[in-house]
């Protein structure tokens, strides 16, 4: 693997993405749900940042706000110092839900962003094929999503977003429906692409090992309301080989994240059960 550490000068540059004091509340029939509570974050160009936190803590909401898809929040998001209103051309998103277009073949799905930006057909097909091969789907170009497994569809969605060549890549649990081996390989691939294209990548994951293996930093979020519990600097050398993963330092990061998340998850489950009990007692 030809993964080189980023030049220090670049990594130290101004934040490419700044999230400033975001508060997001959803009105629901049972009252207001505070999804994000004064979340601030700044991401350097070329950085790989993972977001980790218990289910329902507001990770997807944070991504939707950064991606310009969610309005009605307090606070500020800026990209390259410029305030963001609506989807920004520098941002590419991979969604948590299955999001391939069922009426398009794999090739046509991956071509999609290029078609929108008016790239000539021959050229965009060639580019799309490259990204399809990158996610290990070479040979499936003319299949329809209905003929693919869940993990394969997710890879199509990843390839489609990669074809957009965004400066900032937001991926919401893109590897969730993959087996451990594919997950590792694809994680490596994404990392490789990220370093080649100098892409800034934000990844939501539930997989602690994966987060430590891939990230420069990890943002741990609290259970509702989602706050920043901790930002962990993963100062392990790159490339992170199986040796790194077996190392003591790696183990310490994993243990730290484990205990953080266990606390939050326990609190989350307790609160949720309490809520349901109260609801059951209601009129």
């Amino acid at each position: 693997m030809s993964v080189l550490p980023l030049p220090k000068a670049q990594a130290a540059a101004d934040p490419i993405l700044a999230v400033d004091d975001i508060v997001m509340e959803f009105p629901t029939p049972d009252g207001v749900v505070k999804a994000l509570d004064h979340v601030s974050l700044s991401v350097r160009a070329g950085e790989f940042l993972s977001v980790i936190g218990p289910s329902g803590c507001g990770k997807s909401t944070l991504f939707n706000i950064v991606g310009g898809l969610q309005r009605g929040y307090q606070g500020r998001v800026s990209i390259g110092g410029e305030a963001v209103e609506g989807p920004h051309p520098a941002i590419g998103m991979v969604f948590q839900e299955e999001s391939t277009f069922p009426w398009r073949t794999v090739l046509q799905n991956v071509e999609f962003p290029l078609e929108i930006s008016g790239v000539a057909k021959a050229r965009r097909q060639e580019m799309a094929r490259r990204f399809i091969a990158m996610v290990g789907l070479g040979g499936f170009e003319n299949r329809y999503p209905a003929e693919l497994s869940g993990g394969m569809k997710q890879r199509v969605a990843i390839a489609r977003t990669l074809a957009f060549e965004p400066k900032i890549l937001l991926m919401d649990e893109p590897f969730a429906s993959l087996d451990e081996q594919t997950r590792l390989l694809l994680g490596d691939k994404v990392l490789q692409i990220q370093q080649e294209l100098q892409q800034t990548t934000l990844l939501i994951t539930h997989n602690i090992t994966e987060a430590v293996q891939l990230s420069d930093r990890i943002l741990v979020m609290t259970y509702r309301p989602g706050r920043v519990k901790r930002i962990l600097d993963i100062d392990l050398p790159r490339p992170r080989t199986s040796e790194t993963i077996g190392s003591e330092a790696f183990g310490r990061f994993v243990a730290q994240l484990w205990s953080d998340l266990r606390d939050e998850a326990t609190r989350g489950m307790d609160e949720q059960q309490e809520l349901m009990r109260n609801a059951g007692r209601g009129p």
Partner: peptide
């Protein structure tokens, strides 16, 4: 139309 497909469109700035 599934919301996420519309979100994909929005994120690609259609």
């Amino acid at each position: 139309t599934r919301r996420v497909l519309l979100a994909v469109g929005q994120s690609f700035k259609l």
